[in-house]
Design a protein around this nucleic acid. Structure first.
Lengths: 195, 195
DNA sequence: ATCCATCATGAACCCTGGTTCACGTTAATG
DNA sequence: CATTAACGTGAACCAGGGTTCATGATGGAT
């Protein structure tokens, strides 16, 4: 019944080369990078791209999927580190920093995805990320470091808007500003009744 | 010597129709809206677009320029309202809210601008906006409501990353989170020595 | 060593979308 | 009212880039 042979070795190799090249080239030369360029960067002919990915949209989608998986792993890593006694706020901070970093790499990719009508990918990875994040937030709230009203959606909202085309200094500053908004010991002063 | 005739009435009318249509269509159908669509929406032939704007890039640039002018006016409006005794924090909040709103409309426009290599436009309007903002921040700091380390660049950084493709509720939440980061009575708890 | 299914190649195809231009219209000037 | 420069029109043009396909190469099973 299993009529499917094992995939050829070079095919696997090429698939990986293509994905890497795609990520890199799109990151480098913007969302409008041509298939030709990607193929060239991968050391492969255009036709090979199409053997692995029926359409450019599919290729970009695959790259995005990789990215989401990466985010999920980062979140789960942070969560596990909680066991080793690190503070939740620090982990959240680290997580945001790491993801912002990664997102900076993938900004153009996401733009490309949007431009092509990115589609439902890897609900599983998304779920894992959300679960890990929820755990982190709860821990932080238990510590009294994170505002009670902060949710996973908040984190998503923030890092989906993370500045990705800014220099590192700006990104760091952004992170600092945003973290201040998540942590405790403040309610916006102007909402407070005039003491 | 003034050999230049007065511009024709319909020409002026059309120019406005084109700019409006461009903003609207790009907002509606994404950054990849074609010149044809814009022309149709403006009730004008393609050639007319090119009479007014030599290239698509120029057209988009013009739309962006309008937008920046709008931002500048919003900032100056807020600043003037300070005289009437309103708190600076509130004005900053209002400003961010209004700009976020406007930016939501212009998200696609900015994307289009980027994709075409948006270019230096209206340094003047930018300068006016920056000046007004600086005044607002200073006032807020004098009130003790805004962190001392907050700068105009911070505001720019934040609202340049404002979520623009999110529903209003999400945008409001974002604003709230961000404002918490700007206002006083907090330093990120996890940076504080363990009390 | 042989064979074949899988895979790679890249020139050619085609369609989308920005841009042009030769020709009709129309608003301003006198 | 006549004249003309400014303006509007839209079919046609052209380049860029995604996609295809006939042909050749190669890894793996026998």
């Amino acid at each position: 019944m299993a009529q499917t042979r094992a995939p050829r070795a070079d095919a696997v190799r090429n698939r990986k080369k293509i994905l890497d090249a795609a990520r890199e080239q799109i990151t480098l030369h913007g969302p409008d990078t041509g298939m030709d360029e990607i193929a060239a960067a991968a050391g492969v002919a255009v036709g090979t791209l199409y053997r692995h990915f029926p359409t450019k949209t599919d290729l970009v989608a695959a790259v995005v999927a990789e990215y989401i998986t990466h985010v999920a792993e980062a979140a789960e890593g942070s969560r596990e580190r909680l066991a080793s006694g690190s503070r939740a706020v620090d982990e959240i901070s680290d997580f945001l920093a790491r993801v912002t970093e990664a997102t900076a790499t993938n900004h153009a990719v996401k733009a490309a995805a949007r431009a092509l009508g990115a589609e439902p990918v890897d609900r599983d990875a998304e779920a894992r990320a959300a679960a890990a994040l929820a755990a982190l937030i709860q821990a932080g709230q238990a510590d009294g470091d994170i505002h009670q009203d902060v949710t996973v959606d908040d984190i998503y909202l923030l890092f989906s808007t993370a500045p990705t085309d800014q220099p590192p200094a700006a990104r760091a500053r952004w992170l600092s500003l945003v973290l201040t908004g998540l942590t405790t010991h403040t309610r916006t002063a102007h909402e407070k009744p005039a003491s």
